[in-house]
Design a protein around this nucleic acid. Sequence first.
DNA 1: TTAGGGTTAG
Length: 361
Amino acid sequence: MGMKMILSKSALLFKGNFNTSYFLKTHLSFSQFGVGFGAHNSFLASFIHSNSYTSDHDEHPKSKYQKVTNLDHALYLFDEMSQRRPFLSIIDFTQLLQSVTKMKHFSHSLDMFKQMCAIGVPVNKFTMSIAIKCCCQLHRTNDTFAILAYCFRRCIVPNVFIFSALLDGLILEDRILEAEIFFKKLIKDNICGPNVVMYNTMIKGLCKFGHNDIAIQLLRHIDERGCKPDVVTYSTIIDSLCKDKLIDEAFKLFKEMVFKKGISPNVITYNSLIDGLCKLGRWEEAPKMLQEMLDVGISPNVHTYNILIDAFCKEDKIEEAENLVDIMLERGIVPNIVTYNSLIDGYYLRGEIVGEIASPI
DNA sequence: TTAGGGTTAG
């Protein structure tokens, strides 16, 4: 099998089914929640700068459990900790659990959590919320509800972190109806006062299912509840509007966020808008947005460049895409697999990749 | 001195 690729310079714990409906008895109607691009200029830059703040990152040094980046090392440490008596602090255990979770070894994290419970480590709300997150990432939300039941048995009252993780799990599994019912029940029965993260999670779910209008209603509702929407709230809806090709609506919300609410956009907000412009073929405006980002002091990241590179490649503008790769490299941003996949697609569309591609293995 | 949310391809 031969390979001939012509790429130019860029070629380079808890078993059992907990009954979710136990928590969702009350079914409420969600209906109770009930400018186009081009006006950006230096005023925007000054406005955003005036609303930005810098924080001193005077963080505490990381513990050895927080520094772990290797699974085998983490498991070794855990084994060592499990055998020590008296137990180390629950903070040490939780930090190690979090490190394994950050490595995305969710099954191992859950196994560790179960082991902690089995040997009697006094798990707390922090530990619980990490375990629930792991369950959700593994698409095992029903097991998550079992952990919640375990919370109650141990007299650990779930808090907004734990409920938000649960809500996120339902949304991840596309169980939007249950998510809505659950969310409303938490509020109606005063089980948990939602904060902006929980609202954002619900808004993400609504957007995921195309309910932009209800998401915007919920955005209005946040203010009425005395909670403040933030850049994630707006960016989530802006992104959804862009994906639904409602770019003018997205820019309207963008302006509301910046000028009315005084919330500074970030690189993710801009990425969504640039992607929306590219996918609608508004080629004049996308580079302007990139320039605007730079003007307001927001550095494009690998996502930003990938969005533009992919769009150029799909439009047979390979040279422009290659120029962007050069700019990325000059700015110290390393192209990743998405960058190369987009470029390969572009070359393929142009017919510059011929023959069969042999397996490299 | 321990926990949560939004962006890119296929």
